[in-house]
């Protein structure tokens, strides 16, 4: 396995770390530690192993250990500007980029508003495209639990997204109203 194989997962690992920690600095530390541990354990990885799941599992285990070790210090932060700063920018025309960025922010905020077990399962399935079985192996639970948790997470995310969308539309229409009154 080449190191380049490992580096291609950096965005996915950082995204997963963000939904686990909701803190960009903690997420970056977590990703770095994941790479350090993965390199130490690299020899044990078989050619047939799923590298992506292996890396994500290492990262999850580090996070869980850290959570157990220093629970009082771990505080889940609310989504703030720092988080938005590390979001990916799209390469579209300015208007499409603006709309896409808003939509992405809405989705991101809605996901960060979910409980951690829902955030985690949404990112593993919807963004990392892991199968139910791969997620079940990672989380150490039956595939049936993954299925039901994912269904609840999606339902909750849908509600949160709808709320965000409605408040966004309200803000936009208020802005438009304000502009027409000024005019």
């Amino acid at each position: 396995m080449h190191d380049t194989t490992l580096s291609r997962y950096i965005d996915g690992l950082f995204g997963y770390a963000m939904v686990l920690t909701r803190n960009p600095a903690a997420a970056a530390d977590l990703v770095q530690e994941t790479y350090v541990r993965a390199l130490k354990a690299k020899e044990s990885l078989r050619p047939s192993s799923n590298v992506k799941r292996w890396l994500f599992t290492i990262q999850r285990n580090i996070w869980l250990n850290e959570l157990r070790r220093s629970r009082p210090q771990i505080v889940e932060l609310e989504a703030h500007d720092d988080i938005a700063d590390v979001a990916i920018a799209t390469s579209q025309d300015p208007h499409a980029q603006y709309v896409s960025k808003l939509e992405q922010e809405m989705v991101r905020n809605a996901i960060q508003g979910l409980p951690v077990e829902f955030r985690e399962i949404i990112i593993l399935r919807e963004y990392e495209r892991l199968s139910y079985k791969e997620i079940a192996d990672m989380l150490g639970c039956p595939a049936g639990t993954v299925m039901s948790r994912l269904a609840r997470a999606r339902a909750k995310l849908r509600i949160l997204l709808l709320g965000n969308e409605q408040s966004f539309q309200q803000t936009e229409s208020q802005k438009a109203k304000g502009r027409s009154q000024e005019g």
Partner: peptide, 24 residues
């Protein structure tokens, strides 16, 4: 589709990329 359009949800910051590249 709405959820997928926001992929990737986050992009690793340049500083982290540099640090990971250094580790490798």
């Amino acid at each position: 589709i709405v959820v997928s359009r926001s992929r990737p949800l986050y992009r690793a910051p340049e500083e982290l990329r540099r640090q990971v590249s250094e580790i490798l």
